[in-house]
């Protein structure tokens, strides 16, 4: 009883703390100093239609590199902790409709994933979302057939090659432009605004991120779901 009263009091206190946010809430009609700089810079300097992509890949490029590294560490941890065991439990096979449909939809989902991460500078989405789509395609195959074996050498190859090239492209910026421009996409020609081949190296970097995220998450899914 006492416990419940304390919980109720804590919730009331939280409501009192958050009430000013609700009362004084107003939509910002104008951009702040930093965000207007980002908006103008991404359109004028980088030719990127999607400002979020420009911020993630260019202005906060080092953070994205760190995120990808964190994801790699998580994959390594899952791979270390979850060993595959032989189970005697027999699982029921899936229906014919699911088997056929998963092979058909696999191609469609992979194509959509590639569309998402190559068009990261034009439409919403980008490397992470495209990578998750690719993972989902492999997941569908696992759901249709649990005994599916992935070729881990190919996964490892794709993951390490894309990670290495990500850093190499970043180093090209230092080499070609100047000391302070690690991961600067201006190493490639910027192209016309709104076209696929524009915004310098942003599509290339996002494709590499997409491949890396896709292969890492596929490894996690394989460790968790496969029998």
């Amino acid at each position: 009883m006492i416990k419940r009263i304390f919980i109720l009091l804590a919730i009331l206190g939280l409501i009192l703390m958050f009430l000013p946010f609700l009362r004084d809430f107003e939509f910002h009609q104008e951009l702040g100093e930093l965000s207007s700089q980002y908006v103008e810079g991404s359109v004028n300097d980088l030719n990127s239609q999607n400002v979020v992509t420009a911020v993630i890949v260019t202005y906060r490029g080092l953070d994205t590199l760190g995120e990808v590294t964190v994801l790699f560490l998580a994959t390594a941890g899952v791979g270390f902790l979850l060993r595959k065991k032989k189970t005697s439990l027999k699982s029921r096979g899936s229906s014919e409709l699911l088997q056929t449909g998963s092979q058909f939809l696999f191609v469609l989902i992979i194509l959509t994933g590639i569309y998402i991460f190559t068009h990261g500078h034009l439409t919403p989405g980008g490397g992470f979302q495209g990578g998750v789509l690719i993972t989902t395609a492999f997941l569908l195959l696992i759901l249709a057939d649990t005994n599916l074996k992935f070729n881990h050498k190919i996964l490892l190859f794709v993951e390490s090659i894309s990670g290495a090239f990500y850093v190499i492209i970043g180093l090209f910026g230092v080499l070609l432009i100047g000391m302070n421009s690690f991961l600067d996409p201006a190493i490639l020609p910027l192209g016309n605004f709104g076209k696929l081949l524009s915004a310098g190296a942003i599509p290339l970097i996002y494709s590499l991120i997409g491949l890396k995220v896709g292969s890492e998450l596929t490894t996690i899914i394989d460790k968790m779901g496969g029998e």
């Binding site: 029921r92 899936s94 229906s95 409709l97 699911l98 449909g101 998963s102 058909f104 939809l105 469609l108």
Partner: peptide, 20 residues
């Protein structure tokens, strides 16, 4: 097209699962 492709698969699998 995606709705047409994906919806029967999920409902078929779900009906089969409910039966089993």
């Amino acid at each position: 097209l995606f709705v047409i492709f994906t919806n029967p698969i999920s409902s078929n699998t779900l009906a089969r699962a409910a039966h089993f």
